[in-house]
Amino acid sequence: MTFTRTLAMIAVAAICTFATRLAPFLLFNGKKPIPPIIRYLGETLPPAVIALLVVYCVKNVSWSAAPHGLPELLCIAVTALLHVWKRNNLLSIGVGTVLYMFLVQTVFL
């Protein structure tokens, strides 16, 4: 891949990222109320996406073979409890990830 092509790809990615971040401010600039459907989607989509990610993370777990999904279930519970307690996405996801890596690399070999 040429240097020019690489720069073009980076520029397109940067422009698309900037456009998607700018679009809500242009569409909903505060002068008129946010449509109810947009508010509904803003409230319901984040939990739905998290639920989808949890299902995706445990889809290949072998429930019939040892350790029977124990590290996954334990880390999901720790992540959920930590999030309910602290309400900090970065903290709960980070601790859950580090705990999972620790468990599968040291405890559940």
Rank of each mutant, 00 (worst) to 15 (best):
K32I: 01
T79M: 11
L27V: 02
H68V: 05
A13W: 00
G94I: 08
Y40L: 14
P35Y: 02
I76D: 04
T79A: 15
I15P: 02
T17D: 03
V12R: 00
A66M: 04
V12E: 06
L103N: 05
L73Y: 03
L90M: 05
T4K: 13
G96Y: 00
I93N: 00
A8C: 07
F28L: 11
A80M: 10
I93W: 00
T106S: 09
C75S: 05
I38R: 05
A51E: 01
A19R: 14
G96Q: 00
Y100L: 14
Y40W: 13
E72V: 01
Y100E: 12
L53Y: 12
A65Q: 02
G94N: 07
E72S: 08
P71G: 11
L73K: 11
C16I: 15
I10K: 12
Y100G: 13
F102A: 14
F28I: 04
M9G: 10
T2L: 07
L7K: 10
V78I: 15
R21M: 13
P47E: 07
A11V: 14
V107E: 09
S92Y: 04
R21F: 12
A19F: 12
T2I: 04
S64E: 15
G96N: 01
G94H: 06
W63K: 01
P33N: 09
P24F: 08
L70W: 09
N89V: 08
V49Q: 00
I37E: 03
A66L: 02
A14H: 02
C57D: 02
V54E: 10
C75T: 13
T2N: 15
T97E: 06
T79G: 11
I34M: 11
R87P: 04
T20R: 01
L99V: 15
I50E: 05
L90F: 08
A48F: 12
A48D: 03
